Measured scan of single mutants.
Amino acid sequence: TTTLTYTDEEEARKAAEELKRRGITFTYTKRGGTWEIRIK
């Protein structure tokens, strides 16, 4: 499992869109002031 952490929502959203485009499965979690993208 790879976890990407972002403090900028815009960056996190761009990363999530890129992963979706590649067909990669991930979970997206907001934790306080950070956003976590966990790639399975």
Rank of each mutant, 00 (worst) to 15 (best):
T1Q: 11
T1A: 11
T1Y: 15
T1S: 13
T1N: 10
T1W: 15
T1R: 10
T1F: 14
T1K: 08
T2I: 15
T2A: 10
T2V: 14
T2E: 08
T2H: 12
T2L: 15
T2N: 09
T2G: 06
T2W: 12
T2C: 15
T2R: 13
T2K: 11
T3Y: 10
T3M: 10
T3W: 08
T3G: 03
T3E: 03
T3V: 15
T3L: 14
T3I: 15
T3P: 03
T3Q: 04
L4V: 06
L4Y: 14
L4R: 05
L4W: 13
L4I: 10
L4F: 13
L4N: 03
L4Q: 05
T5I: 15
T5G: 02
T5D: 02
T5Q: 07
T5W: 12
T5A: 05
T5M: 10
T5R: 12
T5S: 08
T5F: 14
T5N: 05
T5K: 08
Y6G: 02
Y6W: 03
Y6F: 15
Y6A: 01
Y6P: 00
T7M: 09
T7L: 09
T7A: 08
T7P: 04
T7W: 10
T7K: 07
D8R: 07
D8G: 04
D8I: 09
D8E: 07
D8F: 05
D8A: 05
D8H: 07
D8V: 11
E9K: 05
E9I: 04
E9N: 03
E9P: 06
E9H: 06
E9Y: 08
E9Q: 06
E9G: 07
E9D: 03
E10D: 12
E10C: 14
E10V: 11
E10N: 12
E10I: 12
E10L: 12
E10S: 13
E10R: 13
E10A: 13
E11F: 04
E11Y: 04
E11A: 11
E11D: 10
E11K: 08
A12G: 04
A12Q: 01
A12L: 04
A12F: 15
A12E: 00
A12K: 01
A12N: 00
A12P: 00
R13V: 09
R13A: 06
R13F: 08
R13M: 13
R13N: 09
R13P: 00
R13Y: 07
R13W: 08
R13L: 14
R13Q: 12
R13T: 08
K14R: 12
K14L: 10
K14A: 13
K14Q: 11
K14G: 06
A15D: 03
A15F: 10
A15Q: 07
A15L: 05
A15S: 06
A15Y: 09
A15E: 04
A15M: 15
A16L: 09
A16R: 04
A16I: 15
A16H: 02
A16Q: 04
A16V: 12
A16G: 05
E17Y: 09
E17Q: 11
E17D: 11
E17W: 10
E17V: 10
E17H: 10
E17M: 11
E17I: 11
E17T: 08
E17N: 08
E17A: 13
E17L: 10
E17G: 08
E18G: 06
E18F: 10
E18D: 12
E18L: 09
E18K: 06
E18M: 09
E18V: 08
E18I: 10
L19T: 01
L19Y: 04
L19R: 01
L19D: 00
L19G: 00
L19H: 01
L19W: 02
L19E: 00
K20G: 06
K20E: 10
K20T: 14
K20F: 10
K20P: 00
K20W: 11
K20Y: 09
K20I: 12
K20H: 10
K20L: 13
K20N: 09
K20V: 11
K20D: 07
R21A: 12
R21E: 08
R21V: 07
R21H: 06
R21Y: 04
R21S: 09
R21C: 10
R21W: 04
R22M: 12
R22V: 05
R22S: 05
R22D: 04
R22P: 01
R22I: 06
R22A: 11
R22E: 06
R22W: 08
R22Y: 06
R22T: 04
G23D: 03
G23E: 03
G23L: 02
G23T: 02
G23P: 00
G23V: 01
G23W: 02
G23M: 03
G23N: 05
I24W: 04
I24S: 02
I24P: 00
I24E: 03
I24M: 05
I24G: 01
I24A: 04
I24R: 02
I24Q: 03
T25S: 14
T25A: 13
T25N: 13
T25G: 07
T25M: 11
T25C: 12
T25F: 12
T25L: 14
T25Y: 11
T25K: 14
T25D: 15
F26K: 00
F26V: 02
F26H: 03
F26L: 02
F26Y: 07
F26E: 00
F26Q: 00
F26A: 02
F26G: 01
F26C: 02
F26P: 01
F26W: 01
T27R: 03
T27G: 03
T27S: 09
T27H: 07
T27E: 14
T27Y: 07
T27L: 06
T27M: 05
T27C: 11
T27P: 00
T27W: 07
T27A: 04
Y28D: 02
Y28L: 15
Y28C: 14
Y28F: 15
Y28M: 15
Y28S: 05
Y28I: 15
Y28W: 12
Y28A: 05
T29S: 09
T29W: 06
T29N: 08
T29G: 06
T29F: 09
T29V: 11
T29R: 08
T29L: 11
T29E: 14
T29A: 08
T29Q: 09
K30Y: 13
K30Q: 12
K30F: 12
K30P: 06
K30G: 04
K30V: 09
K30R: 08
K30H: 10
K30W: 07
R31M: 13
R31V: 15
R31L: 14
R31T: 14
R31S: 13
R31P: 02
R31N: 14
R31Q: 13
R31K: 14
R31G: 06
R31Y: 11
G32S: 06
G32A: 08
G32T: 04
G32P: 04
G32N: 14
G32C: 10
G32V: 05
G32W: 03
G32M: 05
G32D: 14
G32F: 05
G32Y: 04
G33C: 11
G33Q: 11
G33L: 12
G33D: 15
G33R: 05
G33N: 15
G33I: 07
G33Y: 07
G33F: 10
G33E: 15
T34M: 15
T34N: 11
T34K: 14
T34Q: 13
T34F: 15
T34Y: 15
T34C: 11
T34E: 09
T34D: 04
W35L: 03
W35T: 03
W35P: 01
W35C: 04
W35A: 02
W35D: 01
W35I: 14
W35Y: 09
W35K: 00
W35E: 01
W35Q: 01
W35N: 01
W35M: 03
E36N: 03
E36I: 15
E36D: 02
E36S: 02
E36H: 05
E36G: 01
E36F: 12
E36V: 14
I37Y: 01
I37T: 00
I37D: 00
I37R: 00
I37V: 03
I37P: 00
R38H: 12
R38G: 05
R38N: 10
R38S: 13
R38T: 15
R38F: 08
R38L: 12
R38D: 07
R38A: 12
I39G: 01
I39R: 01
I39P: 02
I39K: 01
I39F: 10
I39C: 04
I39T: 03
I39Y: 10
I39A: 02
I39E: 01
I39Q: 02
K40T: 15
K40V: 15
K40F: 15
K40G: 13
K40Y: 15
K40N: 14
K40I: 15
K40Q: 14
K40C: 15
